[in-house]
Amino acid sequence: MAAYALPFEKPLAELNRKLEELRGFGRKQNVDVAADLAQMERKIAETREKIFAQLTPWQIVQVARHPLRPYALDYVREMFVDFSELHGDRIHRDDRAIFGGLAKLGEHRVMVIGTQKGRDTKGNLEVNFGCAYPEGYRKALRLMRLAAKFNLPIITLIDTPGAYPGIESEERHIAEAIAVNLREMFTFAVPMLVTIIGEGGSGGALGIGVGDRVLMLQYAYYSVISPEGCAAILWKNRSYADRAAAALKITSRDLLAMKLADEIVPEPLGGAHVDPRQMGATLKQILLRHLLELKQVPPDELLERRYAKFRAMGVFAEQPAAAAAPVAAPGAAVQP
């Protein structure tokens, strides 16, 4: 994993380099350096722990975008068996930025849907850097309807910078595709589990992000606008993204406190990419727990609770109508 170090991981990379040097030295000179190696490894572990215990929001965004981070299909391989991918929106084409299909999670038959990023240039061109077109959202909707028809729970894995802002997206009405998904996701009477596994990029994430539970990986982020976009608007300079990331409150810890995320899925020290297998196992266990809980809830009750959950999101002040002279000072009655 030392192959790619984020800027704030430089001290770690340096220590790793020294470790390799020492190991090489020991081999070449036939000297016993075991004690030194162990000490250095301890130091590396301590340094990593220290760095990751105090990541800033902007550093968390970088972990979420780490080029080695497991992507949605990696989780499909780790957590599910017998995945049968289903293609196409039956209108325009098969958008590779959003995949979906039937799969088994433990003993549960489910529909799994996710946004997919590419590992290299070729892969990224295929999935458009994880930015879906309208047909991606329409495919997701088709598969969710299919799932609801056959009473299969829906599991979505989200990792996208956002829906694709292009000419064709507008011509085929990306906004309408997302809006229809938002409305329809409140009508499927099957358990719906949403997990933000990396980037939760605004409407592009929310477009498959309504559910009975919204989970976030520890170093995932979920934001109404990218930190760079926010910085460009507020400071007229994208390099203020670190400030924007802090101001927007986009980390799993912030969003859990704001009751917009239900649970944080802990990542291995150093991030999900350090141990994708363990990450998959952890997430699978948590998904299964929620799935078992939700399967106990009667369908009508499920829809009622899902409505109430999103209905309660947002904070504002309210004064009694009688006292509502225009533009008085904000009242005290803050409603969560």
Partner: peptide, 12 residues
């Protein structure tokens, strides 16, 4: 933007 992710959730 000033209301962060709360504002996004108004869409839902």
């Amino acid at each position: 933007m000033y209301e962060g992710l709360y504002s996004l959730m108004q869409m839902a």
